[in-house]
Design a binder for these strands. Structure first.
Lengths: 160, 160
DNA sequence: CGTGAAAATCTAGAAAA
DNA sequence: TTTTCTAGATTTTCACG
């Protein structure tokens, strides 16, 4: 996903993004009303925002419990060695491992942080054993259960 | 958000959720085609999934750099005391702090993990000082920069 | 960026499996 | 009950001013 230039966002663009960040399925004309432009203008703006990569996509927020994966965990991963090759080999597979929601490449002593969802603690152990500790680039891992995940703002504004 | 009963999801429901998790703005009839039911059936299914809380909402995935917040961090928070009151007082404000993307209530020795986006390292320091270390319930914090965040699957299936 | 009109889509309700 | 069919209302979309 190339980073296309950066014509900075004007107020209308920011409003569009703010609304879509919270309600991605709003009809185009309702969105146009909300941000105060014509429907056709709004359509073009949204298209442009997508083309420029400001809006990457639209996603449904799903209750993972309802999908049978009620348990979440945060797994710190430390690589055996911090070479470019090891990083590349881990980063290329991590996001696709089953149940992985997010992968963070960290600046601290732990190289990666994996946010995962699993069916139960057995599945969690299997995940760690089958996909992490057996991966040649992985040194140590540490697993921490998540009691609860709360969503913050999806359209962060500079804190004053 | 009450947890409404659990009529387990059938194959059509799961397909709908799988598609919407990746493309929330797909037209209803296109979605109906994709999962193989009539449009009005599809509409009713989606409405039911929302009512049951399986689908919580629809969100645009926004490039935070384009919004002027290119720096992300993971902040571990340890409370002063692990009382219900302290937990409650922190949990009630954390998700609303400026730049907070996610708040994880953790089972380990660190009580909370905050995923935040900020404009630069000055803003990060200000965030920690102004909102965390000054909060009466907060004991220690540890901030780790995020080099990169990669999204995993939005519709996790049980790992085999 | 807005207007207008054609095309596509949405949606409720009736009918059917 | 659940799904499909049908048709009127709404929305999307684009050429043009």
């Amino acid at each position: 996903m190339p980073k296309i230039p950066q014509p900075p966002l004007d107020e209308v663009d920011r409003s569009i993004v703010r609304v879509l960040a919270q309600n991605a399925r709003i009809a185009n004309n309702a969105l146009a009303d909300e941000v105060g432009v014509a429907a056709s203008t709004c359509l073009a703006r949204v298209r442009s925002l997508r083309d420029r990569g400001v809006i990457r996509g639209f996603q449904a927020d799903v209750d993972l419990s309802a999908l049978g994966m009620p348990l979440q965990a945060m797994i710190s991963v430390r690589l055996r060695a911090h070479t470019r090759e090891q990083n590349e080999s881990f980063r290329s597979v991590a996001p696709g491992l089953p149940g992985v929601l997010e992968v963070f490449h960290m600046a601290g002593s732990d190289d990666y942080l994996l946010h995962v969802a699993v069916a139960d603690s057995d599945a969690l152990r299997d995940f760690v054993v089958d996909h992490l500790t057996t991966h040649p680039a992985v040194g140590q891992t540490q697993t921490n259960l998540i009691f609860e995940r709360m969503a913050g703002s999806r359209f962060p504004e500079p804190g004053r």
